[in-house]
C-alpha cells in the first residue's frame, strides 16, 4: 500500500508537469484546430533559458524563472508570426500547419544542438534533495514544488480565461473564429495571446522538467507524451488536457513501478490508440464535424 501511494504521488507530480505542456497544445488546438508540434521545441528552450539564467548569469531563482517564461512566450509568438501567420492568411489546410510546425521544431532543436551542443546538462542544485517524510511516505521536495507550481499556474490560467475580457475573447474565438471577428474581436491578437500563454506555460514546464531531470536538446520528444495526454483528455479542452495528463502520469509511473520501465512509453501509445478507437474526441474534447 505504501508503495502504491508512493507511486501515486510520483505520478501526480510528473502528471502535473505534463498538464502544463498539454494545456499549451490544447490552447492552440482550440483556436486554430491543429496540433502545434513546435511546442516541444519551445519547452526545450524554456529549460535552457532557465539553465543559463541560473548558471551563466548567476540570477536568483525567481529572476531566472521570469526570464525563462518571458523568453518562451516571446519565442512562441515569433514561431506563430513566421511559421503560421502566412498560412492563416491563406486559409491553408491543417496539414500545412502541422508540417510547418515540424519544420519549426526541427529548426529549434537543431539550432540548440549546433550552438550549445547535444550533451545533457544538470541544473545547479536549488532544492535540497532529502525528501519530506509523511508517515511512511517520502515526498520529494522537488516533486511537491512541481505539483504546487503547476497547480497554481493552471488555476491562474482558468481564472484568466473565465473571468477576464481577454479570456472571454479566447473562448469566443475558440467557439467560432469568423463570428468573433464579425463581433469586433481582433482575432489576430487573440492568436498572439494564445501563443503567449502557451509559451509562458511551456517556460514553466521546461524549467521544472529541467530541474527534475536534465536539460538536453531533445526534451521536445518527451512532450510528445503531453500531446498524447491532450488527445487522451480531448484536444481543445483545457480540463480534458489536465485530466488526461494527470491520468497518463499516474498510469505511466504505475506501469514503470509494477511492470517494467521498458514498457512505459509503449503503454502511452497504446492508450492513445485505444482512446482514439473507443472515443475519438477524448474524454471531453469538442466534436469534429464533417465539412458538409
Amino acid at each position: 500500500m505504501t508503495q502504491f501511494l508512493q507511486q501515486l504521488t510520483n505520478g501526480l507530480s510528473i502528471g502535473s508537469v505534463y498538464a502544463l505542456m498539454a494545456v499549451g497544445y490544447s490552447l492552440v488546438y482550440s483556436i486554430m484546430n491543429f496540433s502545434n508540434f513546435a511546442h516541444g521545441g519551445v519547452i526545450m528552450l524554456g529549460a535552457y533559458f532557465g539553465f543559463f539564467g541560473l548558471t551563466t548569469f548567476k540570477l536568483p531563482f525567481a529572476a531566472a524563472f521570469a526570464l525563462a517564461t518571458a523568453g518562451t512566450a516571446l519565442v512562441a509568438i515569433v514561431v506563430e508570426r513566421v511559421a503560421y501567420k502566412p498560412l492563416r492568411d491563406r486559409k491553408a489546410p491543417f496539414l500545412y500547419f502541422i508540417i510547418s510546425a515540424m519544420g519549426a521544431s526541427m529548426f529549434l532543436e537543431n539550432f540548440v544542438i549546433a550552438t550549445i551542443g547535444p550533451n545533457p546538462k544538470p541544473y545547479p542544485p536549488i532544492i535540497p534533495r532529502e525528501p519530506i517524510a509523511l508517515g511512511d511516505l517520502a515526498l520529494g521536495r522537488l516533486d511537491l514544488i512541481m505539483f504546487i507550481v503547476s497547480a497554481a499556474c493552471l488555476t491562474l490560467l482558468v481564472l484568466f480565461i473565465d473571468r477576464t475580457r481577454l479570456g472571454k475573447a479566447i473562448q469566443a474565438s475558440a467557439y467560432n473564429m469568423k463570428a468573433s471577428a464579425l463581433m469586433g474581436i481582433n482575432t489576430d491578437s487573440v492568436v498572439i495571446l494564445v501563443f503567449a500563454l502557451g509559451g509562458f506555460l511551456a517556460g514553466v514546464a521546461g524549467v521544472l522538467y529541467g530541474m527534475k531531470y536534465m536539460v538536453y536538446p531533445t526534451i521536445g520528444a518527451i512532450t510528445l507524451k503531453s500531446f498524447i495526454a491532450a488527445v487522451f483528455g480531448g484536444l481543445g479542452s483545457l480540463p480534458g488536457a489536465v485530466l488526461g495528463s494527470v491520468l497518463l502520469g499516474v498510469i505511466e509511473t504505475l506501469v514503470a513501478g509494477y511492470l517494467s520501465s521498458q514498457y512505459r512509453d509503449l503503454i502511452a501509445f497504446v492508450i492513445l490508440i485505444g482512446v482514439l478507437i473507443v472515443r475519438p474526441t477524448g474524454i471531453m474534447g469538442k466534436a469534429v464535424e464533417d465539412k458538409a
Partner: peptide
C-alpha cells in the same frame, strides 16, 4: 473511420507503437 487530423494522430500513434515494440 476517424475524422480530420484524428486519423493523422492515430497513424502517428501506430507508427511510434510499432517502433517501440521492436525496441522491446
Amino acid at each position: 473511420n476517424l475524422k480530420g487530423d484524428y486519423f493523422c494522430i492515430a497513424t502517428l500513434g501506430f507508427g511510434e507503437a510499432i517502433r517501440l515494440v521492436f525496441n522491446n
